[in-house]
Each structure stands twice: as structure tokens, then as C-alpha cells.
Design a protein around this nucleic acid. Structure first.
Lengths: 326, 326
DNA sequence: ATGAAAGCGCTAACAG
DNA sequence: CTGTTAGCGCTTTCAT
């Protein structure tokens, strides 16, 4: 039913190789021949079969994107970046959701490996051992996780955490709590590290709670804990948690930002839409997705291990933070 | 680098055909031979090359999923359903985001067609002409759009709209506004139709505003319009819009639900997390995604045009609706 | 029950 | 610049 290269060749009065060349290495075909071929192909509705091509070139023209939870608003943004950049290079992206399960994640990689040129692995939750095992099956680019010897796209959480605490200190806060994310999350460890560093430098009391799942409900949970701890500010692992904090605080009649300041990480769309709007460390989500594909492409083309790219982050001050009350 | 069927054949002392059969038609291979083959394959880490297989069987083992905007929380839920069901059948899913652009959507279909067995097209924004053109390139299953002669997974918006208005009327509301979604959206037309039907039957004044994009900002915009129109209740095209309404109303000092009732459609995760929590017509998003894949699979297997499946919807009453004030 | 051989649609030497 | 030929890894007749 689909037009093949042979039919085009016959119709255009050339050999199949010429048709093939007209598409893959046009500079090797005489101008007018090429035009004739392309026109004929167009007319016949010919589209090269990528599977057949891949069989011989060894490249599939596909990449994979694996995320822990597609319903976490952070990841759709990343995926949009991945997908947009892939489309520009005529690459297609296989989507997979590991459901926050490291084991499922590792299985997905193995099974996907055969039909992709590489995989963008977002916020991998795998253990070091699983990681070592997965590396090697196919070209992997990590997003939001640093892995020794593997290319990755990172974000400057140390800087972001510093900005968050500087902001809080400028407002007079001295006692804050950090609501942790998943224990398996590299970003959580990194954000915590940044917070600790800054807290020590600034002489701020930093209490760490958790780990918690990166979801709204954890914030609801954590808010009560923070309240009991008597702090004046809460830094959440991500915006989803922070939103949960906001809701719980409102329910308990604690005015934000008057009685408690709240900061998140991510800057998901909803962060700007709540009342009060959320102060948060904004992350370049789409850009990270695009960059991850670039890194992958670079790796495939030149084989150079570009190592780790780190993207800047910046605090967006909205309405959920204010000077500490006397 | 990857193990091929030939190596397995040699190692297991059989021909390649036997290895092939052991995987695809095990009943044609003697028990012990099969076991030996499978074991050898396992040991060698052999995984059949799907592209090569597809070349000859004509099936790729891939399906496509196209959504208008992956950052709209409705779609990640659908995608999760699609992906989960696909994985159960050892199918892989290509993801594409059309960016709400009908033209891009139609191009994506054509380009994707060659490498998939079928496509789940969520909330297609294409015109009837573009639709007619796209049908036929590959097997298409529509989700949230009725297309004559094409299989689709629909939701009962008529029923949902009825529930919403019944609820409003029970609370004493007589004048409401409907904030429309995109003009190109079938769900918008359908929800509007359901609302009109119910309004007529119940003797409710229904004012229609829009069309608007299915985003938060449209709700902000629409809230002012609704206020000026002097209604007591707002039904938004979707939860994102409804959230915008809530925010704007709060900013303008209009208490919800005391001075205005607000209802959305979708039941995105955020709907339960706002203050007040949003009353909304819940849609079976994941289920729809799974069902779409089932329909697609059925179509591919048996070729039967199952026609249109319609999933039930139900109103979830939360805190954004209340009796109209005297 | 198993093997040999013929391709699926395409690209990549290798000749001219 | 273009054509011929040999496969890529696999499934599927057709024999045996």
C-alpha cells in the first residue's frame, strides 16, 4: 500500500540508489536529476521507511524519554522541550512513565534500548547499582541527576538554594524548615546540600523534615510539622509540596505570608496562579529538555562526552514570602 | 554489538527459522527445542530487532499519541492511560505535541503514519477537511472528538452538563454564564450543547462567553465579564479556566462560593487543591486513554469498527458552589 | 518439527 | 554522477 523506493525509481527513470541518494546525500546527485526524483517522490506520496533505513544504518532516528511521573507538572514541560527539539531534527520520541519505580525504570531502559539511538532519562530514581547496569545498554543522557562519567543536564540548585535563603534572611527569617523530596532523588539531595551550605554561611537554623513524595499531600503533611517546629519559613522540595503547604496553612488559619513564608522549587504553571502566588526557585524546564536532546545528539554524532551541563536557576519572588513579623 | 538471531541459532544448534518460531509461534516448535532456544537467547541477551521484524510483518509494534498541549494537565493523565495500556501489550508509544495548531497536527499524523500501527488522537483541533485528509493515512482513534465513520472514545458531556446545571438549580441559581473553550474543540461544542439543553429544560438563563483558549488566563478574563453580566454562577470550559476565575474573583474581593458559584470540567489534580476546592465535572482521563488503545488494538486485530465508545462523567461537588444568596 | 531460501525497503560499497 | 550488488535482522513460504 505504501510507495517504495523502487516504484519511485521506476517512475523517475533512475536506479534506486539515485533515489536513495537524492534523499540522504543530495549533493551527490545532479541538480536536475535530484529535482526529478524529488518531484516524482512527492507525486507518488513516497516517504522513506525509517525502519528499513535503520536496519542498515544502525540508527533508528528515535529517542526515548523516561520520566518518573508524567502527571507531575514539572515533566510535561521537560517533555515539551525534548519533543520540540527532537522534531527539529526529524527525530521521534518514545515516551515512558516509570511510575516512580526504579525497577520499572531500569526495565524500560533495557527494553527500549533496541529501538532508540539514545534515551533522555529525567530525574532517574535508580540506585547506583541499577544505574551502572543500565549505562552501556544504550546512550543515556541524564536530566536532573549527576552520574559520574555520564553526560547529564543539571540545574544549579546550590545557587537556587542560596538565592532562596538570601531572600529569606533579607526578610529577617532565622529559623526555617526544608521539606524534603524523595530519598532517591538527586535533586533532593542537591537542594538540601545547597540549603545547608547557605544556612551555615548565613547563620540560619535549618530543620530538615522528610523525605516525602514530591506531591501535594506531602505539603499538607509537612505544614503541620513545620508549624509545630515553630519556624517562620518553609522551603519545600517542589512547588507541588509548597502548594500543599499553602492549602494546609490556609485551612488552619495561618496567614501566608504574614505568619509564615513559603518557597518552592520548579515554577510550575500553577505556582503563579495560587493565592497568594508562590515564591519559587524557577527551573529552566523546557530548555533542559532541549539541551538534553542536544547533548544526546552531540554524543551520537561526535562521541564526545560533553560531561555535565549546568543550567542557571533563579528565584521568582511572588506573594508567599514577606518580612518576618515582630 | 547486539545479539542477532543467527548467533542464537548457532549457539542453540538450530536454524534461524526455529529461533524465530520459538518466539513468535512457540506451538510450532517441540517443547525441549523451544526451551533450549529460549535459554540460549536469554544467556546471550538476545532481543529480537523490532524494526527488522516490522519490515516483514508490516506491523511496527508502535502507536502514536498526539495531544494539543502536554502542559495542560488533562493530557498527561490521558497519556498515562495510553502508555500503561500500551506497555501491557508490548507496544511503544510515540509522543507528539501539536501546540494547539491544527496544521501541525495534520503534519504530525502524516509523518508519523509510516512508523506506527495506529494513532490515538486526543482532542483533535483539525477542521473537517483536514480530518478527512488525515483519515486513511493510518488507523486513527479519536479521543474527545466525534468523527463520522471513525472510531472514537467520547465522554458524556451532555450528562455531565446536566448534572452541573441540576446542581446549580438545586442551589437556587437561575442566571449562569458558560465560559467557552476553543472554537475548534469538539468538547467545547458538546459541553455547550449539553448546557443549552439542560438550561432550556430547567428554565435557566444561560449566557455564553468566548470562545477562549483552554487556559488559566482565560478564566481571569472571563471572570470580569461574568461579573459584569450579573450572573450568580460560572461554568467554565475546563478546570484551568475555572482556576483562573477563582483567582480573579478572589483578587476582586468577590467571595466564592458566597457571592458566586464556580464549576469546571476535567477534575485535574489541582482542582481538589485550591481554596475553595473546585466543584467540577470529573472525566475518566486515564480510562479514556486505556480504552483508546483497546479500541485501536481491536481495530488492528479484527478490523471491526467499534464505532464510538462513550464514558460516563460525574459531578464532584466541592467547595466552590453554594446556595445563591438572597 | 525443522531447515533453506527468498525477500521486507532501504543504504553503502564498488564499479563504471 | 549513476547503476549494480550485497546485505541489515528478521519472518515466512516451501520443502523435507
Amino acid at each position: 500500500v505504501a510507495t517504495t523506493i523502487r516504484e519511485v525509481a521506476r517512475a523517475a527513470q533512475v536506479s534506486v540508489s539515485t533515489v536513495s541518494r537524492a534523499f540522504t546525500t543530495p549533493e551527490l546527485v545532479r541538480q536536475d536529476t535530484r529535482r526529478r526524483v524529488i518531484e516524482t517522490a512527492e507525486r507518488l506520496g513516497y516517504r522513506p521507511n525509517r525502519a528499513a533505513r535503520g536496519l542498515i544504518t544502525g540508527k533508528t532516528g528515535n529517542i526515548g524519554a523516561i520520566v518518573p511521573d508524567i502527571t507531575n507538572p514539572f515533566f510535561p514541560s521537560v517533555l515539551r522541550g525534548v519533543q520540540a527539539r527532537a522534531r527539529q531534527t526529524d527525530l521521534w520520541v518514545f515516551l515512558a512513565d516509570s511510575g516512580e519505580d526504579p525497577h520499572a525504570e531500569s526495565r524500560l531502559i533495557t527494553e527500549m534500548a533496541k529501538q532508540v539511538d539514545g534515551i533522555v532519562l529525567a530525574a532517574s530514581r535508580m540506585s547506583a547499582a541499577q544505574l551502572a547496569n543500565a549505562t552501556g545498554t544504550t546512550t543515556l543522557v541524564f536530566l536532573n541527576r549527576r552520574v559520574a562519567g555520564s553526560p547529564s543536564v543539571l540545574m544549579d540548585y546550590i545557587g537556587g538554594a542560596k538565592q532562596a535563603l538570601d531572600h529569606l534572611v533579607a526578610l529577617g527569617h532565622r529559623r526555617c524548615v526544608y521539606l524534603q523530596g524523595p530519598a532517591t532523588s538527586w535533586s533532593n539531595r542537591e537542594r538540601r546540600r545547597g540549603l545547608r551550605l547557605a544556612a551555615r554561611r548565613l547563620g540560619v537554623d535549618l530543620l530538615e523534615l522528610g523525605p516525602f513524595a514530591p506531591i501535594f499531600e506531602s505539603g499538607v503533611h509537612g505544614a503541620d510539622l513545620a508549624l509545630a517546629a515553630g519556624v517562620t519559613a518553609i522551603v519545600a522540595y517542589n512547588d507541588l509540596q509548597a502548594l500543599g503547604v499553602l492549602t494546609r496553612l490556609a485551612d488552619r488559619g495561618v496567614p501566608v505570608p504574614e505568619a509564615m513564608s513559603v518557597i518552592g522549587f520548579d515554577d510550575i504553571p500553577m505556582a503563579a496562579m495560587t493565592t497568594p502566588a508562590l515564591t519559587t526557585v524557577a527551573l529552566p524546564k523546557e530548555e533542559a529538555g532541549r539541551l538534553a536532546v542536544d547533548v544526546l545528539l552531540g554524543l551520537l554524532d561526535t562521541g564526545d562526552e560533553d560531561g555535565q551541563a549546568e543550567l542557571p536557576t533563579h528565584l521568582i519572588v511572588r506573594a508567599s514570602t514577606a518580612p518576618v513579623r515582630e
